[in-house]
């Protein structure tokens, strides 16, 4: 008897413990998502009172909108680019700090990690000054050594500015990836390396056969952080290029903002949001299956 009543109590208590988190997420994340899905089937302005049902019209419009595809392409570019630069350099630096250099480890680690804690808005302002075509120190240096800086500016030429965004993002985030990998490296038992050394595996071969498998999970987490970050990117683009010139550096986040708040196409913006949401959920699902396998 007492066993079952305590189970009842347990059940109520469990519900009570779950409630605050579920309530917050439900009300402020899930309900707005549902509202966004509903809104994506309508055409309406931010101030207009009558909604016109357009069915899948907004989605059809996105499929035919070249700027949408540019934005999506830019998101993918930033995702792949940041995986290569951030996870790549992060792993390199972590490896150097873990088994390469003997002195100054803490100094390097502290310095390289530092930008992680600086606000991306502050970061953007400093880089805007650095990249300024007329008064920026970068052009001063480039001209000083007799080279010609890009005609449209570092952040003004779409063929260059996307790479510059990668540079800024790497500047800020490599330290975070480095620390993740470093923790993974330090969790690998030293005996493994000793045993391998006895078998003649050292240096590069030890890295491939012991280190990489040992940090597989950590690299996966790092890659996922880059993917999610690349999908959600907004601040960096909004402040540095504003999506320009002429929408060439637009990403889905900034394009949604433009459609919603500058052009007042709320239904279309909702549809763009939903597309982003589906892509993000896809990656969420991927994470779930991968983490289960791990």
């Amino acid at each position: 008897m007492s066993h079952s009543s305590s189970r009842m109590l347990d059940r109520w208590m469990s519900a009570g413990m779950l409630a605050p988190a579920l309530l917050l997420v439900g009300v402020l994340v899930l309900i707005p998502s549902v509202l966004a899905v509903v809104g994506s089937f309508y055409e309406f302005g931010i101030t207009s009172q009558n909604w016109v049902f357009v069915g899948l019209g907004n989605y059809a419009r996105a499929m035919a909108d070249p700027i949408f595809w540019t934005a999506l392409k830019n998101n993918i570019f930033l995702i792949i680019g940041s995986i290569i630069t951030q996870v790549g350099l992060g792993t390199l630096f972590a490896a150097l700090l873990d088994r390469g250099v003997r002195r100054g480890n803490t100094f390097y680690r502290t310095m390289i990690f530092m930008p992680v804690i600086i606000s991306s808005i502050a970061v953007a302002f400093v880089w805007i000054l650095i990249f300024d075509p007329n008064v920026g120190p970068l052009n001063a240096v480039i001209k000083g050594v007799g080279l010609t800086p890009p005609r449209l500016g570092w952040l003004g030429d779409p063929n260059i500015s996307l790479y510059m965004l990668l540079v800024i993002a790497a500047w800020q985030n490599v330290g975070f990836q480095m620390v993740l990998v470093l923790a993974g490296l330090q969790a690998i038992p030293k005996e493994l390396y000793e045993a391998a050394a006895l078998d003649g595996a050292k240096g590069w071969r030890a890295f491939v056969h012991i280190t990489l498998p040992g940090i597989r999970n950590v690299l996966m987490v790092g890659t996922l952080i880059c993917i999610i970050g690349g999908l959600k990117v907004f601040d960096l683009v909004f402040v540095t290029t504003g999506g320009g010139p002429a929408n060439a550096t637009q990403v889905i986040g900034s394009y949604t903002y433009l459609q919603a708040f500058t052009l007042g196409n709320m239904g279309y913006a909702d549809a763009l949001s939903v597309i982003l949401l589906v892509v993000a959920l896809g990656f969420g699902w991927l994470q779930l299956t991968l983490s289960r396998r791990g």
Partner: peptide, 16 residues
């Protein structure tokens, strides 16, 4: 105009 006017912030222009 200056070099790369589309990449120059208006605050920079004002200050110049």
């Amino acid at each position: 105009f200056e070099e790369a006017p589309n990449a120059t912030d208006y605050t920079v222009a004002d200050t110049m």
